[in-house]
Simulated assay, not measured.
Amino acid sequence: MTDQGKFARFLITLSAVIVAGCALTVTIKVMNTDPEAFHPPRLLDQEAVELQAARAARGPKDVSRDGVECPTAMEAKKGNKFECRVLVGYNDKTVTVEVVDDQGKLSMNAS
C-alpha cells in the first residue's frame, strides 16, 4: 500500500510540474505578442481623402468628390503612399498621397 501512495504522490507532483510549465510557456508567449495584433489598424477617412485629392487636382473651389477614385481602407500609418485618380474636365490627373504621421496627416501632389 505504501508503494501505491508514493506512486500517487509522484504522479500528482509530476502533473503539477507539467501544468506549471505549460502556464509559464503560455505567459511567455502572451508577453512576447505584438500589442498591435490586438488592435485593428487605424484607417483614413475615405471621404476626407477624396475631398483633399479633388482640391489638390482641381483647386480649392471645387469640393465635389465626383470623379475621384482612391483606394479603400488605407491605413493611417506614417510612410504609406497611394495614388488617387481625379477627373478634371475630360482629363484624369493622378494625385500621389503620402501619410505624413500616424495621426493621418496627408501630403498630396497632383500631376
Rank of each mutant, 00 (worst) to 15 (best):
P35R: 07
E69N: 15
A53I: 09
R58E: 02
S64L: 03
M74G: 02
S64H: 03
E36P: 05
E75D: 08
D34C: 07
E47G: 11
C70A: 10
C70L: 01
M74N: 01
R58C: 04
E69P: 00
V49Q: 08
D66R: 15
L43T: 08
P35Q: 06
M31K: 14
K61E: 14
F38P: 00
D34H: 04
S64R: 04
R55P: 07
R65M: 05
P60W: 02
A73F: 12
E69Q: 13
V63G: 12
R42C: 06
R42Q: 15
Q46E: 13
R55T: 05
T33P: 01
A53N: 02
H39Q: 13
R42N: 11
P40H: 09
E47H: 13
V49C: 07
H39Y: 08
E50H: 07
P41R: 03
E75H: 07
V30P: 00
Q46V: 03
K61W: 12
P60M: 08
R55A: 14
T72C: 08
A48Q: 15
F38Y: 12
L44C: 05
A56E: 04
R42V: 14
E47M: 13
E75F: 03
C70H: 00
N32D: 09
K61A: 13
Q52R: 11
E36V: 08
L51T: 12
L43R: 03
D34V: 05
E47A: 14
L43N: 01
A54E: 01
C70V: 06
A76G: 06
A73S: 11
H39C: 07
D66C: 11
K61C: 03
R65H: 01
Q46T: 12
D66E: 14
S64I: 00
N32G: 04
E75G: 00
Q52G: 13
G67Q: 03
R55Y: 02
Q52D: 13
S64E: 07
Q46C: 05
G59K: 01
V68E: 00
P35W: 02
V63N: 12
A57D: 00
R58G: 06
M74Y: 04
L51C: 09
E47W: 09
D45M: 07
R42I: 09
P60H: 09
L43Q: 04
A54C: 10
P71R: 12
V49L: 06
M31Q: 06
Q52F: 15
P60Q: 12
E50M: 14
V49E: 00
T72G: 08
A56G: 04
E69M: 10
A53H: 02
A76W: 04
P60A: 08
L43W: 04
V49M: 01
M31N: 09
A57Y: 01
T72A: 15
A53K: 00
A37M: 10
G59I: 03
F38S: 07
L51V: 12
A53G: 00
P41A: 11
R55N: 05
A56P: 06
H39S: 11
V68T: 06
D45R: 09
A54M: 03
P60L: 14
K61G: 04
H39K: 12
R42F: 05
V63Y: 05
R55G: 09
A57F: 02
L51N: 14
N32S: 15
Q52N: 09
Q52I: 05
V49R: 00
E69W: 04
N32P: 03
